[in-house]
């Protein structure tokens, strides 16, 4: 089989010197692409704000940043409707913000304030925004894969057209529960979309040290689940591919497995770049920065004439202002009262 279409190999998608050109905008609405670009910028800048405050010590809780790999969240969020159920993991700030989660509530959660999206009880690794269909993100690797599968089962039992989404990493496919979940979803034809953000690393270990093949799509193929592998830094392709998969699942077409190939610019946890983790990482990071999802979408929109550098600069100023205001507010917010520790143990 041609490498490009094999479920086992990422082919050029894992090559940091490939895929640097502006992306193809195709027939996507320019207006919605512009708002998605601005959303990408907001996520990037919000996480940079978090990184700075991890560095200066204001944030104490562990933060896993998605800087550089924000695009898959945008692709999925573009198609999420009322009734859907989305689940994430430890690296989920981008999922939360792409779905429309409130900035101040995110910052407040990370600072342990009562105004946080989880009332200050969970921190960065436990985000929830029910009004935006985000049911929960948790840091036990693989834990939300079966939970998303079960949400899809509930939708199917209800006979509605809602779907469930499980965001997971390339490390999470190493947990046995992935295989059990894919088998369930496949045999029961459940409306669930598994989105693997394959950033080639699970904490300090490159995928080459952990798996015999670098594409996780082979697991979908083994369970007869339709799969798509895409450049995870190409927002347009992500929007297109997830759209097709989600529409298919909504009309009883069963599960879909999407592998978005991407890269995180910061270390596994915290603000640093972790250049010391393996020779491969320091060599590749500079290359991946040239595959920036934001830059590639922006350049394509400029070339297209739909958007200008000037407009982007203005938008950035507004985003900075929003982030600053949300951060100030979160810093001023109150900590939970002591009794909150016990009030929430049982429903």
């Amino acid at each position: 089989m041609n490498e490009e279409y094999s479920s086992k190999s990422l082919g050029i998608l894992s090559d940091p010197t490939a895929c640097r050109e502006p992306i193809n905008l195709k027939n996507q609405s320019r207006e919605s692409l512009i708002s998605n670009l601005e959303l990408l910028v907001l996520i990037r800048k919000a996480e940079e704000k978090i990184a700075d405050n991890v560095e200066n010590g204001r944030i104490k809780c562990p933060c896993h940043l998605a800087i550089g790999q924000e695009a898959p969240a945008i692709g999925i969020a573009a198609h999420i409707q009322k009734g859907d159920a989305v689940f994430g993991a430890h690296r989920s700030h981008a999922h939360y913000l792409a779905l429309g989660g409130d900035l101040r509530e995110l910052f407040a959660e990370i600072l342990g304030k009562e105004t946080g999206c989880s009332k200050g009880m969970g921190g960065s690794m436990h985000l929830r925004s029910l009004k935006n269909q985000l049911y929960g993100t948790v840091p036990i690797v693989g834990a939300t894969i079966p939970i998303a599968t079960g949400a899809a089962l509930a939708h199917k039992l209800d006979g509605n057209d809602s779907i469930a989404v499980s965001f997971l990493g390339d490390g999470a496919v190493e947990e046995g529960v992935l295989h059990e979940s894919l088998n369930l979803a496949s045999t029961m034809n459940l409306p669930v979309i598994y989105v693997v953000e394959n950033n080639l690393f699970a904490s300090h270990l490159h995928i080459g040290l952990r798996q015999p093949n670098d594409s996780t799509c082979r697991f979908a193929e083994a369970h007869n689940i339709k799969w798509s592998r895409i450049d995870g830094n190409d927002t347009v392709k992500l929007i297109e591919t997830t759209g097709t998969a989600i529409n298919c699942a909504r009309s009883n077409g069963g599960p879909h497995f999407i592998e978005a190939v991407t890269y995180r610019w910061r270390g596994h946890v915290g603000h640093r770049e972790d250049n010391d983790v393996g020779v491969k990482r320091s060599d590749d990071l500079e290359g991946w920065k040239k595959r920036d999802p934001i830059d590639r979408l922006a350049r394509a929109l400029f070339d297209d004439g739909a958007y200008t550098q000037n407009e982007l600069d203005t938008a950035k100023l507004e985003i900075d202002r929003k982030i600053e205001a949300a951060w100030q507010q979160a810093e001023e917010d109150r900590y939970p009262l002591k009794g909150e520790l016990f009030r929430r143990v049982y429903a």
Partner: peptide, 16 residues
């Protein structure tokens, strides 16, 4: 430990 899961907020960690 009090009969509750571990919280994250530092003010709750202090009493936990």
């Amino acid at each position: 430990l009090p009969s509750a899961p571990a919280p994250t907020s530092k003010v709750l960690e202090e009493i936990y």
